[in-house]
Design a protein around this nucleic acid. Structure first.
Lengths: 171, 171
DNA sequence: TTCAGAATTTGATCTATATCAAAAGACAAT
DNA sequence: ATTGTCTTTTGATATAGATCAAATTCTGAA
């Protein structure tokens, strides 16, 4: 535990800070102590599309790039002022060599990301925009107050206008 | 390698065989030597929806249930006569205790599943039915000849009729 | 070969959501 | 307060894809 703690370092970031730029290889895994972050990508028509939101208590990383050390098409940015704990890939590897049990932690993290991804596939496969909105309200209450509408809409796979209408209907 | 080989056992299955029933805890990870399998679930309106197709050379498992040993809402069935290699969860655990490197294999498998899941989220988030169809043709050529249309349609998140029309348009 | 049941296609609507455009609200800087 | 920019809402219309129903084609067992 002590070794793990030593490998992490804490830092403050202002809002709108790019933690990971697309095209780069992900070097860092973050734990959010305070604040809100977002993973997004830019599609072939130039639209900015939110892949996910991450808040205090969550881990954020481009898992695919971090664990494979290949470049990634995603960006991570802070949406609010954040306090983050970070660990670098190299330090994690060293830690894993020293304490093989860390490999199990890695499996756990991956399992966790996979679970989230799977439930989103199901949501996007056959639920209506309204249903996805309701699910978001349940799973991420407060996100609506913290992130701009356009970013939430793209996360849900709908346009900003549609989200605005869904939202007003519910009131 | 020898120990791994010993832990796997080969078996033949006829088509339409249920390898995993929903509600059960996944006990087995399969490697497909020959044939085609499908993971599906039944949604709240009773519709059968394909989560994925798996063919010779692929691993199939309800990863979420297999690795956590919790019940799952998915089923796995064979769509053709299959020759499968299987390993039981308990045997995999024993193997992992004996050879810690197996834990890395587990991470790899999870990474692989995560990668697939991520690319499907992107497809479902903002691509048209036509685009998803084209991508499927590229990534899984031959699936159209091997699986019934309705199952492919639900995989793409569209109805059978729409898939039929898209398909005829391309010809 | 024939025939029943299943799978696929085709056609006619309907509907959820997108698109385009403009108006209304927020907010930050002067 | 006043302005300019950004975000959200509202309105009018268009469209991809759904739904329902019928016609056609395929398949496999007798």
């Amino acid at each position: 535990m002590n070794a793990i703690e030593l490998a992490f370092f804490q830092k403050e970031y202002t809002k709108q800070h790019i933690l990971h730029h697309y095209g780069d290889i992900s070097t860092t895994l973050y734990y959010i102590e305070k604040g809100l972050c977002r993973i997004y990508y830019v599609n072939d028509t130039g639209k900015d599309i939110t892949y996910g939101f991450y808040k205090e208590g969550d881990f954020v990383a481009i898992a695919e790039s971090f664990f494979t050390q290949k470049p990634s098409g995603y960006c991570i940015e802070t949406l609010e002022d954040c306090s983050l704990f970070s660990i670098r890939y190299n330090d994690l590897i060293k830690l894993t060599d020293e304490f093989p049990i860390i490999e199990k932690v890695k499996s756990h993290v991956l399992q966790y990301f996979l679970l989230i991804a799977t439930s989103r596939i199901i949501a996007l496969q056959f639920q209506s925009a309204q249903q996805r909105y309701n699910a978001l309200l349940e799973q991420q209450p407060g996100i609506l107050q913290r992130a701009p509408l356009g970013q939430i809409a793209s996360y849900l796979g709908i346009t900003q206008e549609t989200l605005s209408r869904i939202r007003s209907k519910v009131l």
